[in-house]
């Protein structure tokens, strides 16, 4: 359903020279699969997710969605063709309420609060406490993540890309969030790509792709790939992340 052919992406470094972030990435994501893209930090995973959503434009290469070349399509066009993107750092809006955002996502101005609440319940939020809250700094990182996921669920897209859903949230929020991802295929009823290094997310993948230094280091089924990366930077447990984040005294 999604094909990437020889995707290359580069940015200017401090000295003004081009630095290659992605080098000739070629991928074929089949319909209905739950694919996790993993790898060490700085390897180019999030860049690839943003290239799929149209947020970044590749320097070279082609992107096909259902056989159609969407390389030059805007973010809006890709969204309307059926690609959703959940941000690593969800965006805050002063004045826009959770209900407004879900209605925008569902493209239904008349979506009832009761229907919008279903999406919030699916991500484990007590809907009536949140439906009229502003999507602003009054919400915690974990709450924003869940609302972000609720907005992409409301879109019912054929392809949903989650960029590091575990980033920026605490251990307790993550443990609750993992339950959402265990059912994500049923909830989205489509193909799912998750950028993650979380062992518990890798554990529920159909396929795993490892990206290192801008290149595909390995790819295959979970059973083929996971044993080889456990304990590496590509697959870390939440506790490991928490320990790393602890201040040194």
């Amino acid at each position: 359903m999604l094909k990437l052919e020889n995707i290359r992406y580069e940015v200017a470094d401090e000295k003004g020279s081009d630095k290659e972030i992605l080098k000739n990435i070629t991928l074929d994501i089949p319909e209905g699969k739950f694919v996790v893209i993993t790898g060490p930090n700085g390897g180019g995973k999030s860049t690839l997710a943003k290239i799929i959503a149209g947020i970044y434009k590749p320097a070279d290469g082609k992107i096909f969605f259902d056989g159609e070349d969407i390389t030059d399509c805007s973010i809006t066009d890709r969204a309307n063709k059926g690609i959703s993107f959940a941000f690593q750092q969800p965006v805050r809006f002063k004045g826009i309420e959770v209900l407004d955002l879900i209605r925008l996502a569902a493209k239904d101005k008349n979506l009832t609060p009761a229907d919008a609440c279903k999406y919030l319940s699916e991500v484990g939020l007590c809907a009536r406490d949140y439906i009229n809250r502003e999507v602003d700094a009054s919400l915690s990182g974990g709450e924003l993540k869940r609302i972000e996921i609720a907005t992409v669920l409301a879109r019912k897209s054929r392809l949903t890309v989650f960029d590091e859903p575990e980033a920026g949230i605490d251990l307790w929020s993550f443990q609750n969030l993992i339950k959402v991802f265990e059912h994500i295929k049923e909830l989205t009823k489509g193909t799912v790509i998750i950028i993650s290094h979380q062992e518990r997310i890798l554990d529920i993948a159909d396929e795993i792709i490892v990206i290192e230094k801008g290149e595909i280091a390995s790819k295959g089924s979970r059973d083929e790939i996971l044993p080889g990366i456990l304990g590496s930077d590509a697959a870390v447990s939440m506790c490991h992340v928490q320990k790393e984040a602890m201040p040194r005294v």
Partner: peptide, 13 residues
């Protein structure tokens, strides 16, 4: 990033 978020929901700029 606010504009991009809403564009990913299918809104034009």
């Amino acid at each position: 990033e606010q504009l991009i978020k809403l564009e990913t929901l299918g809104l034009t700029p």
